[in-house]
């Protein structure tokens, strides 16, 4: 079966079972490995991508649901890794092991798109589904605010 999706601005026709989770279609079929597997049950956020601009957990989203829609992965977030969030993340040294960070950034990007100046509470709520075992949360908050052009405190 083929599924037609727009991935990072490019039309793709994938020969896959429409039930296959978007995560595995993106990783195994398209070879876009910036999207990570951490739990497979929508519990950790490592697999977060945008579906028509909305953050979704790719591990529980069948690729069929993306048919005719537009998917953005971390590879398509910005042309040169220069999204304000990516810059803030590097400047503030947010990543430790780095594994969860693409999912964190995709989630935060969706937040900033609809809420350019989020409060602490809104940041916490938007990122509540994204685990970081290395414990980078305080820096994530600071980096979101920095990217939003807000000062700390």
């Amino acid at each position: 079966m083929t599924v037609r999706v727009r991935i990072n601005g490019e039309e793709k026709e994938l020969d896959v079972d429409p039930e296959m989770p978007l995560l595995w279609a993106v990783r195994d079929v398209l070879g876009l490995t910036g999207t990570k597997y951490g739990c497979g049950q929508a519990l950790c956020g490592a697999c977060t991508v945008h579906l028509d601009g909305q953050p979704v957990r790719a591990c529980v989203t069948p690729i069929g649901r993306a048919e005719g829609h537009s998917v953005t992965t971390i590879e398509g977030l910005s042309p040169d890794g220069n999204h304000p969030l990516q810059k803030a993340w590097v400047e503030l040294g947010v990543p430790q092991c780095g594994f969860c960070q693409t999912g964190q950034i995709m989630c935060a990007a969706a937040l900033l798109a609809k809420k350019p100046q989020p409060s602490d509470k809104e940041i916490d709520q938007s990122l509540a589904g994204n685990l970081c075992r290395c414990g980078t949360y305080t820096r994530i908050r600071s980096a979101v605010k920095k990217a939003a052009g807000m000062s700390e405190e």
Binding site: T33, P95, G98, F99, T102
Partner: peptide, 21 residues
């Protein structure tokens, strides 16, 4: 000191265990 691997982490290009084919 700046985080050497920062850019690779935030763009998804850092190669982890499941990323080699």
């Amino acid at each position: 000191m700046p985080l050497l691997d920062g850019p690779a982490y935030v763009t998804g290009t850092a190669v982890f265990g499941a990323d080699i084919r």
